[in-house]
Write a protein that binds this DNA or RNA. Structure first.
Lengths: 242, 242
DNA sequence: CGGAGAATTGAATTTTATCAACTGATGTGG
DNA sequence: CCACATCAGTTGATAAAATTCAATTCTCCG
């Protein structure tokens, strides 16, 4: 175990709630080690019943569901601080897959320890429910966008959501976010074809709203982009880090 | 308080997990009363911070998100046994609204008591996380369908999902489910126009797959419908009842 | 330098939305 | 009991949006 929770660099970010010494101790006891994952490697697979859960320390990943026709729906973009595998822990098995997009460093937990956590620390247990509820509202926002909005609004929403997640994870410098995800990933998240996504991106760029290029994302005109998006976007708030 | 939890008719259904006497006692202490709601009335509103949470005893409702352009995305169909308002309890406020579609009878809880539940009963706390995770995977399934499938597959999925929920709630007699939701509601759930939903329903009916008519739903050919749906549909499993 | 994956562009085609009109059931007041 | 209003559902014609297909260009690595 390389990094103890108390000195985890993520905890220093304003995004994450601070823990009491007791909570920190309980959490630290859970940590089983660290895991490095190469870019492109699967972390959890739909239908599997992984004995391991993870918190992302470094790198980015994709959550997605595969369909029988070969398509896939991207459910969300995974950033440092995100907890992976709660579903596998709570339900019988994962309902979606997670794959690394960049090299990653993961903090590893044992599924079996979760039950003990519910007994030992009500506040940490509550945090797990919070995380599940948070993911639920992210998905609801995505569904509302994909179900009811046209391509421009969808792409605008996708870009703002990506920027927000990157900011939360402390990855943005000078308004520029590193963006390892490809247009194809974005298309699969928005329910659009790659071609149409590309054309819409070009149009947003031409209008001076945002640029996705060279593995980086820049928002040029946030107010106008936000006006394009038809849903009130939830800004990330401080959140628990498991 | 009319019905005590121990004699709640919902608990008799095979769908719901049975509780230990201790768990039942803890749960019963939470119940604050019952509430009748007329058809069409709002139960919880997006942005509100309701002090009340509910378990549905009778009747059906819709979860949905409203967009700025006046459209709405239906996030899910609410049936007896469903828990409403977990989001308001865990996050600061509701991210979606819930409106009664039929007259309803609700079991009422106080938001503040939830925190105590996490201290008093780890297993019941775990059940709440389970519920949040369940809703998450429902939404993921919906997103995958709306994002990646054509109209026929979407409608087929919607009908099967409705039938599954009705069966789970013990509402189906002779393969026929009462269905108070309108085609318009289904359309808003699937991200299709009412007209196109109607035409697709007609086509499924003509092909002998399913009939939605006179406020009832009948599945004629489940295997073929399931083949139409491109996702492996999760069948409802036994679940906790709060 | 060469090659593979990603991004971009321009049609042609398909799917879905929109518009508009009509049917059928239900309910109300005169 | 009938005229009238209302609302959900149905249908056909037309318009708009997005997909698919087919190249071509660009970028990054080995």
């Amino acid at each position: 175990m390389q990094i103890p929770c108390r000195t985890c660099p993520l905890r220093a970010l304003p995004t994450f709630q601070s823990l009491s010494p007791e909570e920190l101790a309980v959490t630290e006891k859970l940590k089983r080690g660290e895991l490095r994952v190469e870019a492109g490697m699967p972390i959890l697979s739909e239908g599997s019943n992984s004995p391991q859960l993870f918190t992302v320390l470094e790198g980015q990943a994709l959550r997605f569901k595969s369909l029988e026709n070969g398509e896939r729906q991207v459910l969300g973009f995974v950033f440092p601080g995100d907890f992976i595998g709660l579903q596998a822990a709570v339900m019988a098995e994962m309902e979606h897959s997670v794959t690394a997009v960049t090299p990653m460093l993961l903090c590893v937990f044992d599924r079996g320890d979760l039950v003990r956590l519910y007994q030992d620390s009500p506040t940490r247990a509550f945090d797990l429910t919070w995380i599940a509820a948070e993911e639920e509202s992210m998905l609801a926002e995505a569904l509302a966008t994909v179900g009811q909005q046209g391509a421009r609004a969808r792409v605008a929403w996708g870009l703002l959501r990506l920027m927000d997640r990157a900011e939360t994870a402390g990855l943005v410098r000078d308004g520029v976010a590193p963006m390892p995800f490809r247009q194809h990933d974005l298309a699969d998240a928005l329910g659009l074809s790659v071609v149409h996504t590309n054309k819409t991106l070009a149009s947003l760029r031409a209008d001076g709203l945002a640029t996705l290029r060279d593995r980086t994302l820049t928002i040029h005109d946030r107010p106008r982009l936000e006006r394009l998006v038809g849903t009130t976007m939830r800004r990330a708030r401080t959140r628990p880090l498991i």
